[in-house]
Amino acid sequence: MNRRKALGSILGLTGIGIVSYVGLKYVSGNSASNKGQLPKYLNLIAELVDVIIPPTETPGAKEAKVQDYIVDFMESCASNKEYNNFFNGLNDLQETCLNTYDASFENCTMEQKMVLLEDLDNNSGSNSLFSKINNKLRGRSFFNLLKTLTIEGYCTSELGTTVHLNYAPVPGKYEAITTINTNQKAWATR
């Protein structure tokens, strides 16, 4: 299968109510029938978040256990719509990997993983008006959810907050105007 064409299916073009052609259990709209299944995808999510926020001189998202946060959030806090978008997105992604690279996402090379996520990112169109309307109707897209939750999970994790960012749980004072130093890290909390 052509990689571009395969990727089309991840981008939500399958739409509401269309059942997958390969027999994966697609669930659309508001049904909650897949709830409870995401823990099975923990490793896949861990690999995904580590591409979005990889280890550099500071820890990556996987080490910060962002995958646990995403599963917890999805299982307990997400709407059924967004849960299904996420769940279906994972399945689509996995299928695309198999079709394109003959390997699961976890077993793809970093370069292949980057190509897959870049395609998702380029097509998520998160700032277009269409996408905003679409978000309201159908919930946020798979990639939008993945990226947003990875950022949130990482920047509120212990490693993200205290190592990657600047965290002062009890500042003790307020210096309203300071001059920024080189390599000034942003405050983790507001």
């Binding site: 591409v51 926020i53 550099t56 980057m114 996520l117 990482y154 990657h164 942003a186």
Partner: peptide, 14 residues
């Protein structure tokens, strides 16, 4: 984007 460039964006004051 994502990757190291995203990390840098998150780390710097906006």
């Amino acid at each position: 984007g994502f990757g190291a460039s995203l990390k840098a964006q998150l780390q710097t004051p906006g």
